[in-house]
Design a protein around this nucleic acid. Structure first.
Length: 668
DNA sequence: AAGTCTACTTAGAATCGTGAGC
DNA sequence: GCTCACGATTCTAAGTAGACTT
């Protein structure tokens, strides 16, 4: 794991849970409409209480960055409606194949949005609901204890969710199976539930086979049929995939309501396998402009509510029954609303660059404070700054997977070594972070930080909190005092971007270096950031097979080369005797062949190394969320690398603002 | 000050589409 | 033409952060 600078402290908050008893959701009435209707009740959740904190409120000198200080700005007028564009109605005009919606609108040249208000006018078509359940053909049979049972539509639908996952590791998990079976039984008819009492005795194999067949058949559709599907899909996208916001037609992100299914929590999630209910219009709140036409809900349904709140960016929202979280339909990242926020995020991170040295001084001072909570705050901030740890809000241990961030670290997650591997004051972290991704890192730290951690650990149980006086909220309040707009997560953005910038700056590229060589430099820099942020992925399923394939190719080439060398030697020997030293085209040919093969071999070896190094690292996340795109754009311009090499179409659209405004001299 | 709720960003996995290599 | 690996895209879970409520 990479490390940056030395220094930091923090802690947590969060929760929200659901009552277990949601058994009466489904109205038995309509067997032909097997919809899973959602209702929910929220039960009080448990939170732990942390140490208090003293000072409040922060005055901060504003640093005037160029434009995107929107959230802090207090004086902005509302953006003028773009004069260049006439208003577009949602129903039409820009064809979807247009590629770019509203292609000429450079929103970044307009005045920023005023504080708090997100739009003036908003028109949209609401969300797209998943299609209703289609019962299985009668030939597809479910067996219980060897006996064929005809399931009611709802029971069958839920059985289908499970059947589809039969090949997945989830169905090997006891918790998953227990949750699934419990929820499934709740929706069975009385008859069914009295019969089906044991998951082990259920035979879903025909259902599983059926779904596999369906997906095979989908692949085998004729070109024409596929074309037709595409057209149908485009029609839906044209209708639901766009909205008109302040007179500009913009893409909606996720315009589909999430279909029902089994909850796939990550890691050891206590709710994995539970049934995520079908969402109806009655569950959905529509947020839309006052004067806009309200989209009609599906026939014989009504919206839960229609509101006109211009202080939020979402178009529709509903509550998901498993976690109780709100789910939102929002704009695509190409939109002004998202883009401006993103730009602002990077500006805040750049501002931190200017403040970071005095912030570091401040928390270094705090390491020796007489107040324990200040020491904890300082150590936590040191870790956040140096190791790019996440803030670590509190979580509800009964309702969520047990993962931690900085402020929620427990004693059991750290190990101290006075000396190890030739380094002193080493701390070893081993914990599950966001998405239950393991963070394992052994790193030498500042002596005073080391001493403090030892102090925090003293007389505590492994399951006790390392920073018992600290929460993320306390930490962020402190950070606000140091710099306006500063929160714990800004450090991750800042450190990721500055790492990329420094890596790129320090890699010398000669004028005659090739594009692949330049890209290697870029990708390596990207990898350094991914490593810093611990962005991991599961090793691809066919990884070892693919590696074997490459190795096989390498072996083959090597054999071939050896043979050719031999051949060359022999030919040469022979020629020496017979024709003296005269040139021979055959020799030349062999030589050339060897040379080519050598090159191919070299390429293959690089490919193998690259693949190996990348097998567990996800590069995309940092590119998408942490690296100021202007760094990459400037680098591409400076080294004449086509931007397409660095950003795919989606990224180019998302970062249009950066591509437009950054020249080759841009520095983060 | 704790607890709750809301809104939004960040994240890896799953799925889709395509083009290189046979 | 066919396969399969890979990148792109979609999906939705899991974070952060701050406002609101008690």
């Amino acid at each position: 794991m990479a490390a940056l600078f030395p220094d930091t402290p923090a802690s947590s908050s969060s929760n929200c849970s659901f009552s277990d008893d949601d058994s009466d959701y489904y109205s038995e009435s309509k067997p032909d409409v097997p919809l899973l209707e959602s209702k929910y009740t929220i039960s009080p959740s448990k939170k732990c209480v942390k140490g208090s904190y003293s000072k409040q409120i922060v005055k901060n000198p504003r640093i005037g960055a160029k434009r995107p200080q929107t959230s802090v700005a207090t004086t902005n007028e509302f953006a003028k409606p773009s004069s260049k564009k006439k208003r577009i109605s949602i129903s039409g005009k820009t064809s979807k194949h247009d590629d770019s919606v509203d292609p000429v609108w450079k929103w970044w040249e307009e005045d920023p949005l005023p504080n708090g208000v997100k739009w003036k006018t908003l028109e949209h078509e609401g969300p797209l609901f998943p299609p209703p359940y289609e019962p299985l053909p009668i030939s597809v049979k479910f067996y219980y204890g060897g006996e064929h049972i005809i399931l009611s539509p709802l029971t069958e639908e839920i059985a289908g969710f499970y059947s589809r996952m039969l090949d997945h590791d989830y169905t090997k998990s006891d918790i998953f199976n227990k949750n699934f079976f419990h929820d499934w039984r709740k929706y069975m008819t009385k008859e069914e539930s009295s019969k089906i009492t044991n998951l082990q005795d259920c035979d879903f194999s025909q259902l599983c086979q059926h779904f596999k067949l369906l997906s095979e058949m989908r692949k085998l559709l004729s070109k024409q049929e596929k074309q037709q599907m595409k057209i149908d899909n485009n029609i839906l996208e044209e209708k639901y995939g766009y909205c008109v916001i302040d007179g500009h037609k913009q893409k909606v992100g996720n315009y589909r309501i999430e279909p029902p299914g089994l909850f796939r929590g990550r890691g050891d999630h206590p709710k994995q396998g539970r049934l995520k209910l079908r969402i109806q219009a009655e569950d959905v709140i529509i947020n839309i402009g006052k004067n806009a036409r309200v989209p009609s809900p599906p026939i014989s349904h009504t919206w839960k509510k229609v509101q006109h709140d211009a202080k939020v960016t979402w178009l529709a929202c509903w509550i998901e029954n498993i976690t109780g979280n709100n789910k939102y339909i929002m704009l695509n990242s190409t939109s002004r609303l998202k883009g401006e926020k993103d730009w602002q995020k990077y500006e805040t991170a750049r501002k931190l660059k200017k403040h970071v040295s005095h912030i570091r001084e401040d928390y270094f001072d705090g390491l020796k404070s007489r107040e324990m909570f200040i020491r904890q705050r300082s150590v936590a901030l040191y870790l956040i700054d140096r190791l790019a740890l996440r803030a670590g809000n509190e979580k509800d241990s009964d309702e969520e997977a047990d993962t931690v961030g900085c402020c929620s670290l427990r004693v059991e997650h750290v190990k101290l070594y006075d000396e190890i591997d030739g380094s002193i004051n080493v701390v070893e972290f081993d914990f599950l972070g966001k998405d239950s991704i393991r963070y394992k890192n052994r790193v030498p730290i500042d002596k005073q930080v080391f001493k403090n951690i030892r102090l925090f650990i003293k007389d505590k149980e492994p399951s006790d909190e390392l920073f018992d006086r600290l929460t993320t909220s306390i930490l962020n309040k402190y950070l606000h005092e140091l710099m306006e707009g500063l929160t714990a997560k800004v450090f991750r953005t800042y450190n990721a971007s500055i790492t990329l910038q420094m890596q790129l700056n320090s890699s010398k590229l000669s004028d005659n270096s090739s594009i692949p060589e330049r890209m290697l430099v870029y990708n390596r820099s990207n990898r350094a950031v991914a490593l810093l942020c611990n962005h991991q992925r599961a090793i691809p399923k066919s990884f070892s097979k693919q590696m074997d394939n490459i190795q096989k190719k390498i072996d083959e080439k090597e054999v071939e080369i050896t043979q050719l060398r031999k051949e060359y030697k022999e030919s040469k020997k022979f020629l020496k005797q017979s024709e003296k030293f005269c040139k021979n085209s055959n020799l030349k040919k062999i030589n050339l062949k060897i040379h080519n093969l050598d090159e191919q071999l070299h390429k293959l070896k690089i490919q193998a190394t690259d693949k190996e190094e990348n097998k567990q690292i996800a590069l995309g996340t940092s590119k998408l969320n942490y690296l100021d795109p202007r760094i990459s754009v400037a680098w591409c311009k400076k080294y004449s690398v086509p931007i397409e090499k660095v950003y795919n179409k989606t990224l180019r659209e998302k970062f249009a603002w950066a591509m437009d405004m950054a020249d080759r001299t841009f520095e983060f």
